[in-house]
Design a protein around this nucleic acid. Structure first.
Lengths: 155, 155
DNA sequence: AGTTTTGACTTTCTTTGACCTTTACGTTAA
DNA sequence: TTAACGTAAAGGTCAAAGAAAGTCAAAACT
């Protein structure tokens, strides 16, 4: 940690849990609080509060503007299925894969250990092959593993 | 002694025991401390802190970057560790992999679900690539996943 | 010959700042 | 009265600069 973006991320997340997954920020105010450029806030939101990580952002400009951050809950049991059939396509980057796994862990859909196992299997470290096929290989493995979660869920 | 790499190795190891098997380094800082090229640190890590020697490395680039070194808490007789260092070589067939996973489940070293996850990741179904590299890929993935089990255990 | 050391170049992630767009609101002119 | 306009108050974008770590091959040791 210790890097500004991480600190802001933590701050927003603590607000999120305090306000049950839905908050409204003032960008400038927040930037001032952390003594940074306002666009830093956009950076944090763009990299840490993505749909893959289970958040959506809405905002409005002008007087009385705001940035709304909403945490999406994984309550529909369809989520894993959606991942396999829609979100993960033919290819997926390491980054995106990690985001997806991260969300599953954070939402308690899987344990930390299971998350770590899946991460290991789809990491660049494990997939030491030409970049060409790497991402399609990763998508494949990830989907197969999620299918296991689905079938386990059925028990 | 007298070789720089050995000195750095010792230094890191002493940090390791001071901080109970888990540390975070700043590559440049460390290089400066030893008055050497930053890539020297990579060399030391790559040659002396390998999984075979019971360590795993994670890192992050960019501002706020770090190198994390984690010691697996194992003794040489540890079964899982043996798998990584001896049993699973450069290549492994699907059949052999499944046998290994099966035994891990039966011996309660891992849960059924974890076993199912690992199986999925190293199955031929997941690894839809030329047979040539398939078995080496499988070996790689399997080893990475087992290393996770070892490092998670360390927590 | 094999291991170590170095340095140039690359990749990834973060931070900042200049400039752009949208919205609310008050003021002015028809 | 109201349409038009101006302005201030938000937030958005993007590219450049900065801050790490990674790679690889050549040079230097032993």
């Amino acid at each position: 940690m210790s890097v500004l973006s991480d600190t802001i991320e933590k701050f927003i997340k603590s607000l999120m849990s305090e306000y049950e997954g839905k908050i409204e920020l003032q960008r400038n105010e927040l930037a001032q609080h952390f003594n940074c450029a306002p666009s830093q806030i956009n950076y944090v939101l763009a990299t840490r509060f993505t749909p893959d990580r289970g958040y959506i952002i809405e905002s409005r400009r002008g007087g009385g503007g705001y940035i709304r951050v909403v945490r999406l809950n994984i309550d529909d049991s369809d989520h894993l299925f959606q991942l396999v059939t829609k979100r993960i396509g033919e290819k997926i980057s390491e980054r995106d894969a990690m985001d997806i796994i991260c969300r599953l862990v954070e939402s308690k859909a899987i344990t930390k250990k299971e998350g770590a196992l899946i991460s290991a299997a789809v990491s660049d470290k494990a997939l030491n092959i030409p970049a060409m096929i790497k991402d399609s290989m990763r998508a494949n493995i990830l989907k197969q593993m999620i299918l296991v979660l689905l079938s386990e869920e059925a028990q």
